[in-house]
Design a protein around this nucleic acid. Structure first.
Lengths: 146, 146
DNA sequence: AATGGATTGTTACGTTTGCAACAAATATAC
DNA sequence: GTATATTTGTTGCAAACGTAACAATCCATT
């Protein structure tokens, strides 16, 4: 009888599994929100949010900040450019580099989406309860440092 | 000047973003381990781990437990069957249903991989420090309940 | 200034993914 | 008992993905 006579590993208590499930759930719910609002994909939202926060970055910068593969960034930037939400400006000293900034339209949409994000997080905090939310945050912060 | 004059949203402190980064990092590192060990993909590992823990499940069960799309499950099961790591047995009463169990070979490999998983988690706990690790776990548990 | 090596961003290609349609079997309603 | 709906698992297809190769540019060593 093949079986779970003595399961060596309990997935439900396995940290990578837990992290993934939580991240997936949160990410998918939030993605549904901004997808409905403006039809952005996840890479596009990430690029927009990074640019909105930092103002002017190169594609490489965006990749570093948002931990996205450079081809993902390249395609997201292209999509945002097609929407006229950002503009490129080649560096005058290093012509490989393109400086990316949000257009007025892009900023307007960024503000709306950032507000959605904050609302979402606030609801998440309420659902979880402030103590546990902060606890989770502290754990994640520790993780980032290590 | 387009800019981050007053960034509405700090991605680094945004919970969904944090969760994703942590999950991605952990998941990728662990995936590298079992990929090197036995060449399993992530869906295949998940199906194997779920079966190893619960003994005998249907494809739908695996999907529910591991939060995978049913096509992903279908393909992972196929791959594991090709390796002779699991066998199917159609239910005698409901012939749509297939009961999946690990073969002896599958169980052997499951045990080895489960051990890798436990080792990985132990190292993770050491890296993070037990207090923060447990804190993170508590936060994730709360999340699962909500 | 010239050759070799790095870096920036895009493109080509094979793989993986999820949605939708599907066949097969069962359950439900009339 | 037949028709309709639901469930289980697979497959076709188009979109998204990452690896690798690439062109363009810059830097370093000579």
């Amino acid at each position: 009888m093949a079986g779970a006579s003595d399961p060596l590993l309990s997935l439900e208590h396995f940290m990578p599994y837990r992290l993934n499930r939580a991240a997936e759930t949160v990410s998918r719910r939030f993605a549904a929100i901004y997808r409905r609002h403006s039809g952005l994909t996840r890479p596009e939202w990430r690029a927009l949010a990074t640019l909105g926060q930092y103002g002017c970055l190169t594609a490489t910068d965006i990749g570093r900040h948002s931990a996205m593969h450079k081809t993902k960034v390249s395609r997201a930037v292209q999509a945002l450019e097609d929407r006229r939400w950002l503009k490129r400006q080649t560096d005058s000293e290093d012509r490989r580099v393109e400086h990316l900034t949000l257009t007025a339209l892009g900023q307007k949409n960024y503000r709306a989406l950032a507000q959605l994000a904050l609302d979402f997080e606030r609801r998440l905090r309420e659902t979880l309860g402030p103590e546990l939310f902060d606890q989770l945050n502290a754990g994640l912060e520790a993780f980032e440092e290590a």
